[in-house]
Design a protein around this nucleic acid. Structure first.
Lengths: 93, 93
DNA sequence: GTTATATATTTAAATATTTCAATATGTTTA
DNA sequence: TAAACATATTGAAATATTTAAATATATAAC
């Protein structure tokens, strides 16, 4: 599915930060991310900052939150990754 | 070729602006962009602002400047577009 | 129901980005 | 060489983003 220019802009912005890229990499590696405070070990930011970055990723649609028992789990929205890269390649939005 | 995290960050930032996306679309449509001041008709910004956006696109590597007789022509770096989308899909950088 | 743990929100400061006006540079043609 | 045109740079204001400290909320275990 082709995305709108606004969607491409929002997703690109979400991808335009080293910390958020690291979070995505981590989630990707784990196929989700059980205890999300793992990320605090990964990137050197306080908990509220990490929460803020995760919010931006969720709002872009790139990840989706899910309850996993007591904690939250975030999963990549692979459909949207595909639509994004296809749209960017074609520059049609 | 896999890009570095820093490269992905920079390219994503370059893509994270509606005006720059419109510039890219325009270049794409024309297969280059003869007189670049065409863009002033396209997006409602002053000449220096457009020049600034083009600079960011050049620094990201997404477009390349070339002399075309009297004026400048910008061409898409299709190789880099491909590498970018491949890297983002795999989240390996 | 209190405590502990995980995540979110609010507020404010620091930093970065976007934009324009003014000016500069570079190239071509007269 | 001067005039005309295309593009770039500088400086400053407006806006947006990133970050942390303090606090709030939500859920599970006790």
């Amino acid at each position: 599915m082709a995305l709108s220019l606004k969607q491409i802009e929002k997703i690109s912005k979400a991808l335009g930060d080293a910390n958020r890229l690291r979070i995505l990499q981590h989630i990707s590696k784990k196929g989700g991310c059980g205890q999300c405070s793992e990320i605090q070990g990964l990137i050197d930011l306080t908990q509220p900052s990490i929460s803020h970055h995760i919010k931006i990723l969720i709002e872009s649609g790139l990840i989706e939150p899910e309850k996993e028992g007591r904690n939250l789990k975030y999963t990549l929205n692979e459909r949207l990754f595909k639509d994004y890269t296809a749209s960017v390649t074609q520059l049609k939005f």
